[in-house]
């Protein structure tokens, strides 16, 4: 091949592939709106807050960003709003060991962020993040779950709490909670955490008393 031919191959080949790329881009732009809810003013304001505090400098969103802090794509599916708002505004009031700094976010800004997270969670991401394939029931290896453990699972307590190393870290570790708290405290705390712990970020447990009792029984066994 002559140098001239090689040069032409480079130039025209590149243009060729760029045109194809542009065509796909055009097609994609037309499809994006059906794959996500409408961007309201609140969502957009929340996005601006996200940029203003440079959240991407620590977090990923859609898996893109920095790897210092958890991904935010499905955060509003995992955690209740009240908790998230308190955490965003003052992380260490929720979890004294939090690495996230208090950034000075206002209440209005936090509300917009939550709207933004809701929007993000509803985007069709082709199934990302994938469900863990090896996820095992918290604390059980092939054993039958007790009634209390089943309630614990169905209420999503492990999003915030860990037992034996499995589960979230934003609430206290419950591996030995039974040796710290008694039945009455646990039951009362489940009905209204704020009554027992000032500024508690734990949501009230919305379940029938029978379930809460079983949950309490389970907690007492954790020693």
């Amino acid at each position: 091949m002559s140098n001239r031919a090689a040069r032409n191959l480079f130039i025209f080949g590149s243009l060729f592939f760029f045109v194809i790329f542009l065509a796909f881009t055009y097609d994609t732009m037309g499809k994006l709106d059906q794959r996500a809810p409408e961007v309201t003013n609140e969502v957009n304001a929340g996005k601006m807050v996200w940029h203003k505090y440079d959240c991407i400098g620590c977090h990923t969103i859609f898996g893109t960003g920095s790897y210092f802090a958890p991904d935010m794509t499905k955060v509003s599916d995992r955690k209740p709003k009240g908790y998230l708002k308190q955490f965003i505004m003052d992380p260490r009031s929720v979890n004294p060991a939090a690495a996230m700094p208090k950034l000075g976010i206002t209440s209005a800004e936090a509300d917009n962020l939550l709207a933004f997270f809701d929007w993000i969670a509803k985007v069709d991401t082709n199934g990302w993040p994938p469900k863990p394939i090896l996820a095992v029931a918290a604390g059980v290896g092939g054993r039958e779950l007790t009634a209390g453990q089943r309630v614990y699972q169905s209420l999503g307590c492990s999003n915030c709490h860990a037992i034996n190393g499995i589960g979230g870290t934003s609430g206290p570790d419950l591996t030995r909670v039974g040796s710290r708290r008694d039945r009455a405290w646990l039951f009362g705390h489940f009905k209204d955490p704020g009554e027992y712990v000032r500024n508690s970020a734990m949501p009230k447990v919305e379940a029938p008393d029978a379930d809460i009792r079983q949950l309490t029984d389970y907690m007492i066994t954790l020693k």
């Binding site: 090689a6 480079f10 994006l32 898996g63």
Partner: peptide
């Protein structure tokens, strides 16, 4: 550089798997 462009331009797609794109 030709091969860089022939593979790299459409290779951008490896960032469009999970961000809400088709």
């Amino acid at each position: 550089v030709g091969l860089v462009m022939f593979t790299g331009i459409l290779g951008t797609g490896h960032h469009y798997y999970w961000i809400g794109t088709p």
